[in-house]
Structures are given as C-alpha cells and as structure tokens.
Amino acid sequence: MNAEPILALLDVTPAGVLAPSAAEVLGAAATIGEPVAVVPVPPGADADALTTAAAAAGAAQVIRVSIPEGSVVTPLVDALAAAEELVVPAAVLVAHSLDGREAAARFAVRTHRALLIDTVGVGVDEEGIIAHHSVFGSNYLVDAAATAGAPVITLRQGAVDQRAVAVDSPPVHTLSIEPSARRSARADAFVLAEISSSRPDLRRAKKVVSGGRGLASKEKFALVEELADALGAAVGASRAAVDSGYIPYAHQVGQTGVTVTPELYVAVGISGAIQHRAGMQASKRIVAINKDADAPIFAIADFGVVGDLFTIVPQAIETLKQR
C-alpha cells in the first residue's frame, strides 16, 4: 500500500534548530500516512543539519524553504502553499505553537480547507482522517473531521507520544518561494527568554511542580524550584504567582496558560481554581500542599497534605535527598 503524503510543517527555533514539536508532528503524521516535512530555513541556519534532523525524526521527504530575515509567519504560509503544489497531501499537520497555528490558520483560509485546531492526536476511520480534541479542561474528548478535502490540523505541543521511524537519506527538495503580494508585519531582533536549560520543558515533562500565591514572594518561590530539582521536574505556576511576578508567564499552567498531563503534578500553595485545574486535572497523579483543608485542589488530589508549605516542602526535600 502506498501511504498518502501528509505535509508536516516543522517548527524551527530562533536558534536555528528543530523545535521539540517537530518530532511530535512527524510522529502524528506517520500514524496516518507518509510524513513529508516542510522545513523553514531561517537566515544563518544550517539547512543540511535541519534536513538531517528532520530525517532522523521520520521525514520521508524533506522540502526546504528559506525564510527571509525579519519576517513573521507569512513566509511559512507561502512555504506551505508551495509545498502542497509539489505533493498533494491528504492532510497538513502543524504544531499548535504560536507561529505554527497562525501559519495553519492563514493557510487554511487561503486554500479553502477545514481547520482543526489544538488537537491531541489524529487517526483514520472509514471516512478518512479524524482529529482528537481534549476540551474544557480535559473534561471532554471530542473527535472532529473535515466535511471535504484535506484538513489542516494543529497539534497541541507535548500531547503526541508517537514517534516516526528515522529515515535514511530521504529525497530533498529546495524550494525558492515567491513571496506572496500580501503585506506582512516586520520583526526586530528576537530576545530569548531566560529559560533554565537544566530543567525539563514544562509541556513535555513527566513531572511538574507548580507554585501559587501561597509562596508569598519571588524569593520564596525558589522553594518550588528546589522541590522540582529534587524530583527532576519542570516548574509550573498559577496565574496568581505569575501576576505577582514570582515567575515568568511561560510557566503558567491553566486555561490561559499551558495544559500539562504529566505522570506527577505537585501543586504547592495553589487553591485549585477551576481555571488552574483546567490545565492540569488530566495529570496521572496529583499531589497538593495547602494550609486550607477546604481548598478545591484537594478534591482532585491523590495525595494531599494540609499544612504550612514552608515546613512541609523543606522536610519533603530533605527526605528525598536522604534516600
């Protein structure tokens, strides 16, 4: 059987390497067809290294497109449009990252395709390709499909576990795209956020330790980081902790932040407001520390400790270290 081509737009980081979402998008594509990677090559990036990385992550073909300096999103749309003329895809998969989802959005409008967004996986039934959504704080699982044509589907980052098999020297096409006549926003130099590279990435971590307003100050929030390090976990936060400046927004878990589903989620000094739960209640195991026995977080915790986090957390860290 000849698998149908699936276009997979890969995210490339500002540093010029494949983003972690790339393996997820290729992994999902491989479950429904043959992944054809569209690799945007930003100025100064090593196109061959990107190609090799895409092949290692399972690209059966690689379509490289150079991206002009100072541009945002629009060239990615032009790249997808050029790529779909080369291969006639059964679906177009894109990461639900900021750039990815906006490229998907503009591309779907431009080419009159159905758009299925923020999905947690894809599959095939008798009638074709379907997309799985996890909505309203993971309380519902909803499957959707396009009424006709190849759909454009975005994949929630960190949600896809499948990985495609590495491909040995796949065919490579290098496309030079005619920039579309549309006006585009201009981008200035990128300012990389200070992200601790020694800790796992929040969206993909097996363990997450999050802190809330109960930490009381930016200095004391370090306690959450210490517990995270003792567990090898990523650091998350409630919106109250982010709003109070304890930690940058990128760490916010919840409805207006990141959705996580790790093996272990530890909530420290977090009340468990419904908007926070929306981003973490599908975690496999939930542990909570809060001095208020009535805090809603306890209603979904597998293991809860009622008490002062400033004595409980140091003792827990101590015990873990002694082991």
Partner: peptide, 29 residues
C-alpha cells in the same frame, strides 16, 4: 470541520488527604 463524536471523561476521585502533624513532608516524600 464537523464533530463526529463526543465523550465525557470520568470525573476524578479524591484520594487521601492528611493533616500535617510535623511529619507531613516526610510522609509526602
């Protein structure tokens, strides 16, 4: 895009909650 099926996830049940008696951190670990 059309919905082809929808299902509710079973609600999460609460587990054990203990009150810290000076050993809470240790028991958590």
């Amino acid at each position: 895009s059309i919905v082809i099926s929808a299902a509710a996830r079973p609600p999460r049940a609460a587990g054990i909650t203990i009150t810290d008696d000076g050993e809470g951190g240790r028991r958590l670990a």
